[in-house]
Design a protein around this nucleic acid. Structure first.
Length: 111
DNA sequence: CTCTTGACTGGTT
DNA sequence: GAACCAGCCAAGA
């Protein structure tokens, strides 16, 4: 763990919190924005550890590239992720986000 | 140190 | 569209 690693993790948490309400992004987009597009799995790992963070992380706004709620199983209860998304106006059907291209938020383009 | 696992992605079949 | 494979990297046993 060097400084860049810590910064990388911190950037992930900060960026996730910047996701606008009613929008979502992908692990790859986050990794790409942080200059590590090949490390999308690490983004997933960071979110897996996000519950250990003191800050609130809207991890439900992060899905995989297909718009699938791949991380729903890590929520308590698992249904929470979809509920939060629908609560923000995002249509989810069969664990998959509908109109994904419409709600997708690209940090590289938006920031 | 080695090996496995995983909230991933891109390409191929 | 689904299924499979290969590359990727950090953490834990």
């Amino acid at each position: 763990m060097n400084e860049s690693n810590i910064n990388f993790y911190q950037n992930i948490y900060d960026l996730v919190q910047l996701i606008p309400r009613g929008r979502v992004t992908t692990y790859g987009a986050i990794a790409n924005y942080l200059g590590a597009k090949q490390s999308s799995r690490v983004v997933g790992w960071a979110l897996n550890q996000c519950h250990t963070q003191k800050m609130k992380i809207p991890a439900h706004r992060v899905v995989n590239r297909l718009g699938l709620l791949s991380g729903k199983a890590h929520f308590t209860p698992p249904e929470l992720m979809q509920q939060l998304l629908e609560q923000e106006g995002i249509v989810v059907e069969n664990d998959k986000i509908q109109n994904f291209d419409k709600v997708f938020w690209n940090p590289i383009l938006e920031l």
